[in-house]
Each structure stands twice: as structure tokens, then as C-alpha cells.
Amino acid sequence: MNKQLVLWIAVSGLVAGCAGLTGDEAPVEDRMGGGRATPSGVDIVEAGSSGTRAAAAGEAKPGSRAGDGAGMSTQGMKSTQITESGQAAAGQSQGGGVETRAMPSHLAGSGQIQGGGQVAGGGSGPAGVAEGVHGGGKDGASSLGEGMDLNSPGSILAKRVIYFDYDSSALRDEFRTLLEAHATYLKAHRSSKVLLQGHADERGSREYNLALGQRRAEGVQQAFALLGVDTAQMEAVSLGEEKPAAEGHDESAWALNRRTEILYQGE
């Protein structure tokens, strides 16, 4: 994974470099056949963005059926899923983990997860989410034992997504455990910082959706604050509707896109 990430960064760096050298407008103008004086363009390529991309890619389609909680605690699915998705995230520029059938994490754990230990039910749910982090190349970096491992697929901390109802930023009860786990981790790791990225579904105005996503991110931030996390460790931002986790145009996709993602610094 690490190798792939490095490779990716290198490639994007190269691309950026080339683009910078040749001048971006030239090809564009040629295509358009225009003869206009060329204002300089700006190429925005940041290596750091790869983490977000990988994460987003890994999360794409964490599951299309939000309903059947019963089938949740399937055991044996996680490893294969992770590998698949992990590969996808690393190897594709977008839309990795297409095959992933993991359920949205909220359906998994509630009640089953007590502290660390082997949380089968919790693990299966967020599998789809976990790969993103996995793909980000941080595995094992801040391992805290089995129960507090940020990235080990079995850990509740590998679950990073909180979902919301339509036009709502209220935290659903099922995410309390998840939030508590992250809060505990953050309190134990004062140097860790998280970016809370709120998202909205595609319906309506982009800017209004950005504001809605912001409210969702802040909802999570407030919950963490109440759980004792230092506000300096957190920043709530919004990506609005711009980074959908699912590409569809129906409620099943929208349900997956109304979310807040927890992004640990450096990922």
C-alpha cells in the first residue's frame, strides 16, 4: 500500500510538473481553436489531496442496502472486502470498492461493542469505510492495541462515517458508540487532530448544501466536545455535495452521501 501511495504521489507530481512546464492553456486553446490572448491558468495539484481521494474512493458505495441489519454480523466477509477495496482505492483514481457490500456502519455495532476486543459485528459494518484509510497508507501507524487501532479493520475506529437524515444534522443514536470510541482515542492522543468533513446529497443549491454539510460536521464536532475532546484537535468543514460517496441519483445513493467523515490528520 505504501508503495502504491508513493507511486501515486510521484505520478501526480510529475503530471503537475509537466502541466506547469507546458503551460496549461496551450492544449486547451488548440482544442478550442481560439486565438485569444492567454491569461495564465493555475494548476492546483496537491500531493496531500491523495489521502482524501483514497479515502473517498474507498468509501464509494459502502453498501447499497441500508436496511437489513440482521445480515450485518456476517463474519468472514471483511478480509476479502478489504483487499478488494484496498486495491481498488490504490489502483483507481475513483470509484474504488465498487463491489463492496458492507453495510453502513451504523447498522452494525450498536450494543455489541464494548471497549476493544474482537468486535465482529462492528467490524463488518465499516469494512467499506476502512479500506479508504487503509488505502491512505497509514496502517499500523498509531496502533493502540487491538481495540484502539485506528486502522485495523476490526477496530471500531476504522469506522469514520456518520450518516444523516434528509435535511437534518441530528446525530442518530446508533452512532453514539462510534463517536465515543473516537472521542476516547482523541482524548488519549492529544496530538492527534481530526478534520470533520460534512457532506450533503446533490439536490438543491451547491452553496446551500455546503452550509448543510457544515452543520453536519459541526454536529459531530459538538458531540466530541461534549465527550471531552479539545476543540483545538478538531476542525469542522464542509465539502457540500461535491464529493459524493455514491454516484447514484436516488434515495439509496443520497442516504450514503448525507454524512460526516472523520479524517485524522496526516491521512
Binding site: V28, M32, G41, I44, E46
Partner: peptide, 16 residues
């Protein structure tokens, strides 16, 4: 919509 040229480009979203 003819005669287009690029002012800024990014792998991350640009809006508004």
C-alpha cells in the same frame, strides 16, 4: 460558449 480557455484547474472541486 466557444473560444473557451482554462483559468484554473484542480483535482479537487472548484465551485462558485
Amino acid at each position: 460558449s466557444q473560444n473557451a480557455y482554462t483559468v484554473a484547474r484542480s483535482r479537487e472541486p472548484i465551485i462558485s
